[in-house]
Design a binder for these strands. Sequence first.
DNA 1: TCATCCGGCGCATACGTATGCAATGCGTCT
DNA 2: AGACGCATTGCATACGTATGCGCCGGATGA
Lengths: 353, 353
Amino acid sequence: MDSKPPRQNVRPVSVRKVTSVDVARLAGVNQSTVSRAFSDDRAVADETRTRVYTAARTLGYTPNLLARSLVTQRTNIVAIVMAHISSPYQPYILDKFIQELRAMGRQALVFTAGPEQEVDDVLPLALQYRVDALIVTSATLSSAGLADCARDGLPVILFNRLVAGANVSAVGCDNVAGGELVADYLIGAGHHRFAYIAGNANSSTNREREQGYFGALQAHGVAAVLHEPGEYTYESGYRAAQRLLGRPDPPDALFCASDIIALGALDCARDCGVRVPDDLSVIGFDDIPMAGWSAYALSTVRQPVSRMIDATLAILARQLDDPTAPPVIERFPVTLVARRSARLPQRVEHRRL
Amino acid sequence: MDSKPPRQNVRPVSVRKVTSVDVARLAGVNQSTVSRAFSDDRAVADETRTRVYTAARTLGYTPNLLARSLVTQRTNIVAIVMAHISSPYQPYILDKFIQELRAMGRQALVFTAGPEQEVDDVLPLALQYRVDALIVTSATLSSAGLADCARDGLPVILFNRLVAGANVSAVGCDNVAGGELVADYLIGAGHHRFAYIAGNANSSTNREREQGYFGALQAHGVAAVLHEPGEYTYESGYRAAQRLLGRPDPPDALFCASDIIALGALDCARDCGVRVPDDLSVIGFDDIPMAGWSAYALSTVRQPVSRMIDATLAILARQLDDPTAPPVIERFPVTLVARRSARLPQRVEHRRL
DNA sequence: TCATCCGGCGCATACGTATGCAATGCGTCT
DNA sequence: AGACGCATTGCATACGTATGCGCCGGATGA
């Protein structure tokens, strides 16, 4: 009775394409009923539902989310655009995002911007897949593409980044306050010769941390501060520290734009025979896991990453729910985690005596 | 003349859904021509093509890859299933995979298996999105789901993992030889009391490395070897080292199943006042970037990661090209990178004298 | 000059699912 | 008893693109 054309498939391997129609036929129902049974539509009798499920199981049916997305106009896919994942702060964030998104029933399509690549280069790719939203962790100062996306109703959320002009949501920490915290701490510890190793110059995080640090130092009457350019890598931190420590007038207090930079600086100090924190205090930013390792015991500024990620996803959910919701900018407070890479401020030492 | 029902959209925000039909209308051609113009089908005149392109640009048209995938039966999406990305060896791999996949014109849908989650749990999700292939980096000994996938013609490639029984492709390094290398090296350095800190017990990498290490030691007549269970984390390595160094008969040679474990062990030794490598030699596996940092200078076994990833993608391309291609298993040789965390073998020391 | 061929394009249909609407059957209320 | 409401299901169509087939016109060959 099966009058299908013989030998349609050339290859013996089962090119199995079980559709809801097949399931419907086996279960003796209409395709629409199968669809309803699988989209937890309550309007289907329990008895029918189980019949559909067993039929689906015997056939090995899996709903095709692409087809579903085509009609529902929702892919349940969120694009995550990052810079190099390699930098050790990113993977933790990425991991958490993926886990949480899955708990929300969404998947993550991950895009990494190459070394010289801008966000705008990978944006078209993401749009082609009709992702529901965009989470951007990549460092960019401005992006016409992002603004376009937001204007078209596609939720865009910047994580730990700020894009000038674009009317998009953003979640970050108070980088300026973090820089100020570090300055106060170092001054309180009685330091006199200050230095800063920068992260990527075109990133908002670097700019803000630098601004807070320099501003607070100036407020305390410190005029001259050494400034070394750099990027967010271990090697960059190492080399910048080499330049600083090789000077005739090396600093005794060093703030690094991120922990990974600070670790490089610490290793350089170690290799140069500079004692930490006796000769040099070093403070980082981010509080990555390695900062707590006893080889470094890096004093650093901690951001509430978990809360920031939760906030990001909350905004995401809201925007997905109501595309007309206005963009939100949330900043979280930071705290200074004192470990052993920086001298303790005087007042703390007094208290200890 | 436009007789569309008025006020279809409630919200003022442009719910722009520009389709190829819209572009076709503006360009004065048929929809199929637009499709051809965008799928580099040569059967379209240059003049027409540019007309289509300009029309698309003015409308802000972006091809809908979901719809395309529905008919072409190809999504150009590859699923990458990982364990925790947090472990510092994974991000580098992930980053490289994503970059290379994009160079191939494919995107990565990343799934992370939770702590207690098996690959089989996330597999259905991946299948629903009709991914073209599956790259699995997660640690699993056996998986019925993977075998099913492979049987259904979906290319599955295991990276640095081996799944018993499943007839799937795999790329890895020679973990057994690596373990042997370490054993020979430590014996050559004149050590007598050996220990091993294991990674996750149910991972093939751990089993193989352990097997090579213990086997070579036995071949050299070493009978008793301390064995500490553990998992692939810094903390686990730290605690295992604590247990080992707290013994009345602590080891003087330690092989850790991975670098991240070794770093924990090194920090524990540092905190315990055990000198490395004078009192204790430590060797890891993987050669993650941190192994080269001067705070650790970890001697370790290096795998040719780049070549392994390239091989993986080559297999992928082949299997996508011809689904009937048989599964391949490739193993790459490893090398021992001698740094300063382990005593040098005697013969080298002799040569130095 | 006519037959042939081919590049270029339109027409129609398929991909797999969701969903509004209608139809059916059953229970309940007046 | 008749009307009405509700639950359940089928029917038909839409989502946006790719592609086989056919048509047309111009170029080429004899």
